[in-house]
Amino acid sequence: MENDVQQMTEDELDRSIEEMREKIEGEVERRHRLLAELQKIRKRRETRKDAEGRQEIERLKKEIDGL
């Protein structure tokens, strides 16, 4: 890889740099999307767990009332 860079002309270097910048930008965008999705999934799981907790509490309350 290093040899490849060493043998490049200035124009090739410019083109590669530009390409690389584009790719990096793309990866950054992709990273943002992944993070947002992860956050979304975690929120959903949290909400579901909350709901389950509430249901469990209700169930226990009913059990206690029935004693």
Partner: peptide, 24 residues
């Protein structure tokens, strides 16, 4: 300078790509 910049950018890209794969 351009060569070293390109090397730096490639490293950065590889690292980002790796991170993104793991994140994915």
């Amino acid at each position: 300078q351009k060569r070293s910049l390109l090397s730096g950018l490639r490293d950065r890209f590889s690292s980002l790509r790796r991170d993104n794969l793991s994140l994915e």
